[in-house]
Simulated scan of single mutants.
Amino acid sequence: MPKPQTGTLTQSPKAVRFWSWIAGAFLIIVLDQITKIYFEGNLQYGERWHVLPFFDFTLLYNPGAAFSFLADSQGWQRWFFTAIALGATGLIVYLLRRSPTQTLFCASLMCILGGAVGNVIDRVQHGHVIDFLLFYWNNWYFPAFNVADIAITCGAILLVLDELLRMRRHKRKPEEPA
C-alpha cells in the first residue's frame, strides 16, 4: 500500500474551519482599517458630518479603552491595552484551533479577534484608537466608536448567547446515574 504524501494540499475539515474563522477575523480587520483610513483622510479632528438627526460621522481619537477608560493617563495605557489585546489574541487563536466546529462560539471569537487586532493596529501605529461613529439624542451622546468596537461588542453578545445556550442544553440533558 502506498504511503500518503506529505505536504499535499488536502487539509482536515477542522483545519479548514479554523482558517475560515481566521479569514473572517482578517476581513473585519481590513474593513475596520479601511474605514478608519477613509475618515481620517476626509475629516479634521472633531469635525462632524451630519447624517441623521441622531447620528453623525466624526473623527475622534481615544487613547484609552472602552468609554475612554484611562484616556487621561500619561501614555502607559497604550502599551497596557496593547499587551492585553495581544494576550487575548493568543488565547482566541488557541481556542479557535481547539474547537473550530463550535459555530456560535467561534463566530464570537472571530468577531472579538478581528476587533481587538483592528484596535491594536491603531494603538501601535498612532498611539490612540480612531473613532468615527457618533450616536446622540438632544444633549446625550454615546461615546464615539468604530467597526472594531462593533465587532468586539457583537462577539461579546454572541459569546454570552453561546454560553446561555450551552447551559440550557446541559440542563435539558438527563442526569447520568452515579
Rank of each mutant, 00 (worst) to 15 (best):
G114T: 04
N119G: 08
W79Y: 10
F26G: 10
Y61S: 15
K14Q: 14
L113Q: 06
K14W: 03
F57E: 02
G90L: 09
G41Q: 05
Q44H: 11
I29C: 12
I34E: 09
Q44T: 13
Y94N: 08
F80H: 05
L27E: 00
F57Q: 03
G41R: 03
V93N: 01
R78M: 11
N42S: 11
S99M: 14
Q33Y: 01
F54V: 13
F57A: 08
T89P: 10
H128E: 13
D72V: 04
L60A: 10
T89D: 10
F105G: 10
V51F: 00
T35L: 08
A107H: 06
L59M: 06
W19Y: 14
W79L: 13
F54E: 04
A25E: 03
S99R: 15
A88Q: 01
G46N: 14
A83M: 11
S73N: 11
I130T: 13
P13V: 07
Q125L: 12
R48T: 03
F105L: 06
F69V: 15
I130V: 15
R17F: 06
K14H: 15
G115V: 07
Q74M: 11
N62L: 07
G118M: 08
I84Q: 12
R78V: 06
R17T: 04
V120S: 05
T58N: 11
L31I: 09
I22Q: 08
A85D: 05
V120W: 05
G114Y: 10
V16C: 08
A116M: 02
L91I: 15
I34M: 13
D56M: 02
S108Q: 07
I112P: 04
Y61G: 10
T82I: 08
I84F: 01
W79E: 08
F18P: 00
H50R: 15
P100M: 00
W76N: 05
F54S: 01
I28Y: 09
R78E: 07
W76G: 02
L43V: 10
R48D: 08
R97E: 07
I22L: 12
L60C: 05
E47K: 13
A25Y: 00
P13T: 02
L109A: 04
V93C: 04
V117K: 06
Q33C: 09
L27N: 07
R17A: 12
W79T: 10
N42W: 09
E40K: 14
L59I: 11
W76T: 04
V117D: 06
P100L: 01
R78Q: 09
P13F: 06
P63L: 04
V51D: 00
R48K: 15
S20R: 14
T82H: 06
L96R: 00
